[in-house]
Design a binder for these strands. Sequence first.
DNA 1: CGCTCCCTAAACACTT
DNA 2: TAAGTGTTTAGGGAGC
Length: 664
Amino acid sequence: MMQESGTETKSNGSAIQNGASGGNHLLECSLREARSNGETPSVDIGAADLAHLQQQQALQVARQLLLQQQQQQQQQQVSGLKSPKRNDKQPALQVPVSVAMMTPQVITPQQMQQILQQQVLTPQQLQVLLQQQQALMLQQVNVSLAASQLRLGMPPQQQQVATQQLAFQQQLLQMQQLQQQHLLSLQRQGLLTIQPGQPTLPLQPLAQGMIPAELQQLWKEVTSSHPAEEAASNNHSSLDLSTSCVSSSAPSKTSLLINPHASTNGQLSVHTPKRESLSHEEHSHSHPLYGHGVCKWPGCEAVCEDFQSFLKHLNSEHALDDRSTAQCRVQMQVVQQLELQLAKDKERLQAMMTHLHVKSTEPKATPQPLNLVSSVTLSKTASEASPQSLPHTPTTPTAPITPVTQGPSVITTTSMHNVGPIRRRYSDKYNVPISSADIAQNQEFYKNAEVRPPFTYASLIRQAILESPEKQLTLNEIYNWFTRMFAYFRRNAATWKNAVRHNLSLHKCFVRVENVKGAVWTVDELEFQKRRPQKISGNPSLIKNIQTSHTYCTPLNAALQASMAENSIPLYTTASMGNPTLGNLASAMREELNGAMEHTNSNGSDSSPGRSPMQAMHPVHVKEEPLDPDENEGPLSLVTTANHSPDFDHDRDYEDEPVNEDIE
DNA sequence: CGCTCCCTAAACACTT
DNA sequence: TAAGTGTTTAGGGAGC
């Protein structure tokens, strides 16, 4: 029925311009890529810095204990965050290290030693304290996350801040990695032994009042029994420390100088006072305790002109004595606790990933959730996420997640690639909002698992087209996109291809543009938006989650985004293709949701002020085929970055598979 | 219950 | 002629 008019519309629509935002797109993609790789824009953290971090932790531990002893009970849940305002112009996460330095604590080296020698630092205590500190950091991260989520609605300056916060998060990750390396090295050296039975404490949401700076101070006091030297090193120390601690908060500013020498996997302190080892390492300028002209002994940071002087300093100041021993012990425990914590976090991560992967299958009450994922691809996906994880997830469903993710019944193709069409799946998902996390994850997931994506053909087609540099694709290219992005579509080509064609013809939102070489398909965003409204209306949960800020064509990017928009979020506009960073993906998604909300409210009245889908979107008359049959790389790469899945490469498989057979 | 969406299947015409 | 591309029609499930 709509056909007739549709046909005409289509031809007309083709006259529109082609919102080629390719340039932007690429740029942003590269940005995203960088971020997604965990690369910190302007800052690097060296092992030395890591060492500092650990030192601080140790200090905190020690001090904490002292306090505990002195005042019986500690107000464990101190006022949450040290840094109240995150939205300030200042990098939200500044750790007042330098400030702390000026306010010496009252812990003498003797005290510290005492503590250490008395074994006051039980693993549990250490862990608690460490966790508290970590919690603080996590809080900071969360805050920054929250900030980033709001970014879209922020003024430019604030967005910068948010960006910095992102950088901070990445640094944290880096630090964790480094710490891990460090721990491993320690283990190798036999300096660290892990007690298996050690209880692990749950990460506490609220951080103790202690801040890194204080720890730093503590360390200082404990270690610096040499006023003169301390004075000399003070400058440095404060600088270095700020580096290690604060760097994150002000990446751009601080621009940490990580000395290359110090990049020795953080085999710091533990390496200590062994002369043999010293001489051993003498010939290598990369002494773990020496870097950047500074002694890297925990809390020391004495300036040493050259390696020789450093050795001298090391032997004289950090000889085998009680103090050094105590410090070493602290360090060991710190490391140990960190390791435990790391293990725990890893476990948690596994569980999370497992849950996310399986969850989609849960709702279906499928006999074998795991099997949903094709045996072939599963291995891949699963292995990435978690080794053995998948199986036990059923139990994990947590309140927040499970309900939300419930919708998309994943149809397994595994055994059913012949079975093919499973209808209800779609209906299920329609009303189920897909969380950003889901999407992000699912993207990879669908690429590898032969699970039917919970998106309509229309949305997928649209996404495919929008992701292409020219915002237009030939039918064949669309096919390719499907097979690349979804393992599921590497099967039953006849079926889904027919569906694709059907959708292209049926929906007015898809405009066919005649080309010299043939025809390409473009998206008429307006039309597309029009048909969205109804679906979403029934999505209370979605609406609930939606916050505010209308986003104009937020920068959602990934293929998923489109799908997302399709399924639950109407507002998606191409104009938004210009996209921010991966880090903002989540926030972007949220924005998307917001948009959807509004859209819903306005019920398709594509009146969103900020966006102008048509302009940005509409295909211009195409005179020449933008993409070669095999030019899929173009759109593909975009997708890849967009998906923030750096490892997109690994889904090469799609190429060898059916794709070829389908595509001549 | 009717409407609308969406999916799948398939027939048919046209083009390459 | 075969294959690919587009268009239509039909039937069915599902949510509102």
